[in-house]
């Protein structure tokens, strides 16, 4: 049986989810756009929320399924699509956004239960420098949320940056994952 694995990128609009999925996918990435609503609709009048999907072929016929999900609570139902077979989560933070921490705060609140049990990391994207102050602020948010995760600065446009994220994610998966039954991960 050919196996497939899932990795999900979660973040606010503009955080880099589509960029990551597109950088990795062997197929044309699929983006499902949803009309903005509520306060977001006041800021952006068209479509701003996207569900991204891509696939990456691996040796031996295996596939890595790539998903990009919004961080907002009202879209959390989408997580059910990716839950089964999920290797881990990469939470993207848009360093260029004035509301970066607000977005992260909502993501942490929305997915707190999942983040307690799954391998995950925070990737600060679009930073002009090492983003030390933003990373410290993210760390404080994590502490307040009683969550622990590596925080890295990345450039989602670069494959080496994405490879770095995966290296960290797989370290967490290999040494920190308490799920003992591999069957739980199989998609």
């Amino acid at each position: 049986m050919v196996e497939s694995y899932k990795v999900v990128f979660i973040g606010e609009p503009g955080a880099g989810k589509t960029t990551c999925v597109a950088a990795l996918s062997d197929i044309e990435p699929i983006t499902t756009e949803v009309p903005a609503s509520g306060e977001l609709a006041l800021m952006k009048d068209t479509t701003t929320v996207a569900f991204d999907y891509g696939e990456m072929a691996l040796e031996g016929g295996e596939r890595l399924l790539l998903y990009g999900l919004p961080g907002q609570e009202r879209f959390s139902f989408m997580f059910e699509v990716v839950r089964h077979g999920l290797l881990g989560i990469i939470v993207l933070v848009d360093a260029s956004s004035a509301h970066a921490l607000d977005g992260l705060r909502e993501t942490l609140k929305t997915y707190a239960k999942e983040l307690e049990h799954l391998p995950w990391l925070i990737a600060v994207n679009k930073a002009r420098d090492s983003a030390d102050s933003l990373r410290r602020a993210c760390q404080t948010l994590l502490f307040q949320s009683r969550l622990i995760a590596p925080i890295v600065t990345v450039d989602a446009r670069k494959r080496e940056s994405i490879a770095h994220m995966f290296e960290i994610l797989f370290t967490l998966l290999e040494y920190g994952d308490e799920r003992s039954r591999e069957q739980e991960l199989l998609a």
Binding site: Y5, E62, I162, F166
Partner: peptide
């Protein structure tokens, strides 16, 4: 198992 999978993904990424 995960080392092996990470290696396959790394190679697919060109590393």
């Amino acid at each position: 198992r995960w080392r092996s999978l990470a290696g396959r993904i790394g190679r697919a990424l060109g590393f």
